[in-house]
Amino acid sequence: MTPKKFDYYSPTSINEAIQLLHDNEDSKVLAGGQSLLALMKLRLAAPSALVDISKLQEMSYVREDKDYLGIGALTIHDIIEHNQTIKKKFTLLTDAASKIGDQQIRNVGTIGGSSCHADPAADLPTALSAVNAHFVIRSGKGQRIVPATEFFVDLFQTAVGHDEVLSEIRLPYLPPRSGSGYIKHSRREGDFAIVGTGVVLTMGDGNVCKDIRIALGAVSATPLRAKSAEEYLKGKTLDDKNIADAAEIANEGADPPSDMHGSKEYRMEMIKVFTRRTVKLAMSRVM
């Protein structure tokens, strides 16, 4: 299979990339290409031009800032999986990155590419929603910063405009006594998630839940926050009963698809099961 013909540009800076996107109406950004090239080979996508930013090495980094951990948009999944700072501070991203595709895909695919592709069943968008990551979007006019709640707009749609480039993803540091986890439910390694659950929580005195964010993947057009379950748990003791009760209402607002990997009914049940497990996983990691 071969993609439809396209013009190819390999800019040497992010500003050049933005200009090229601006000048070429039907262009797409090529980062790792592990989703885009697959779509182009199947002719589900046929952009008339590709702006290949994969050689912009300065966009690949993990950097500790004062208030947040900054991850360059072109950082590959394999680096995210093995980075020790991420593992220590945002373990759910380690969980999520390690479950993407397979080794060859993790060697090329990028966090920015996965975010901008915004497949509802992808792992990183769900994990980033639970972290409430902030996305730095660059354009010819400067840059703007968009929280995860506004970044994922719809199925395969994000807040990144046509002549804009996602440059960095910022993870605000978690307060002391926080923990996180992501569990992907799939039948085979490397498949997309049937349900993906990401949890970030902070404990107060004893086992009281001070703050919690639960994000669900593959059950809606965008990563879905389980707000009712979050509200239920805040201020309550994180014991088996309360966690189970919260999990029962975690699927409120979910509208999962039925396909060969699982029916809608099955996914609605699995949201409960995996919310429960992921909350416990995050609790076990509270430091």
């Binding site: 299979m1 290409g33 090239l37 697959a38 290949d52 994969s54 394999d78 060859q104 895909i105 090329v108």
Partner: peptide, 27 residues
């Protein structure tokens, strides 16, 4: 397979294993 699933086309590219059907020649 040509769709990035089977891995038969895996090569080393700059020290990393990649599927050569998921990369453009020009890259």
């Amino acid at each position: 397979c040509d769709t990035g699933h089977c891995g038969a086309c895996t090569i080393f590219m700059n020290g990393k294993s990649v599927k050569s059907c998921m990369v453009l020649a020009i890259q």
